[in-house]
């Protein structure tokens, strides 16, 4: 019964979307804003990658909001995860185990390579495909790899929070400096420079560095929170948690029987 109703629902939805699809135009849709941006972006901002000039120049406040959402999601995740922290005794860790020399040494071999690639992608965000988001994720992977290979190695959460806060603050400060110069918020500063060179496009590379560091710090903190049991300091909390859990499960057992 349930499956039949699901099938009916699915076919109805598919039919509706197909009717909508019938009216779409591929490759010829009118693009008013896009056309104007393509014409003017190179002169106004001087970034070779026009997507970057949209992300940071024309829609900079959008990116600020995106960073805020990511920050909120990461903070909420660590909050929820710390409330279910498990008690871990020092001698027996049921979690990740040490997987030997090969993994550990290749992790330390890959760490500088991944760092280089991540920083390269962040720094060339205004010239080539890539930028703060992609490079930030690669940085997070670089920091997470040693943690995966050598479990039990703690993460410096306060250092991550420092980097994250500094990057976020510098993004906003760059926006406010533009206000003091009589421009709009987050309007690019400095000159354009020669287009296609590393030092060009005004303050867009600086903004992308801030975005990259912030995304990298947030995501590596999130991965570390998910990976490690993080039981230190939460003994009382987890004790009450487990007590209430036991109560719940007992109740559920009683309900079932």
């Amino acid at each position: 019964m349930r499956n039949i109703s699901a099938l009916v629902f699915a076919s109805g939805l598919a039919f509706l979307l197909l009717v909508i699809t019938w009216q779409f135009i591929l490759g010829g849709a009118p693009m008013l804003i896009g056309e104007a941006i393509l014409q003017q972006a190179a002169e106004e901002l001087g970034a070779a990658n026009l997507v970057t000039s949209v992300v940071l120049g024309y829609r900079g406040i959008d990116t600020l909001g995106e960073i805020a959402i990511l920050f909120t999601a990461s903070t909420a995740t660590s909050l929820v995860l710390s409330s279910i922290a498990e008690k871990t005794s020092a001698k027996s860790k049921p979690g990740l185990r040490d997987d030997g020399t090969i993994l550990a040494s290749s992790a330390s071999l890959f760490f500088p390579l991944l760092m280089t690639i991540g920083l390269y992608i962040i720094l060339h965000g205004h010239l080539t495909p890539g930028g703060g988001f992609q490079g930030g994720v690669i940085l997070a992977a670089a920091f997470f790899l040693p943690l995966l290979a050598v479990p039990g190695r703690g993460v410096n959460h306060s250092g991550l929070a420092l980097v994250e806060g500094f990057a976020g603050a510098s993004f906003i400060v760059i926006g406010i400096i533009a206000l003091f110069q009589g421009k709009a918020f987050l309007q690019p500063l400095f000159g354009h420079g020669e287009m296609g060179s590393l030092l060009s496009a005004g303050s867009l590379p600086l903004l992308y560095i801030a975005v990259g560091l912030k995304v990298g710090a947030e995501l590596s903190g999130l991965l570390a929170n998910l990976a490690e049991p993080s039981g230190n300091g939460d003994e009382t909390l987890s004790a009450t948690e487990s007590a209430s859990t036991e109560q719940t499960s007992m109740q559920a057992e009683k309900t079932k029987s």
Binding site: M31, L38, V51, V54, F133
Partner: peptide, 14 residues
């Protein structure tokens, strides 16, 4: 058009 691409870029990370 670069505008949808920029929007999708942020959407994936969110």
């Amino acid at each position: 058009d670069p505008v949808p691409q920029a929007m999708v870029l942020t959407s994936i990370v969110i």
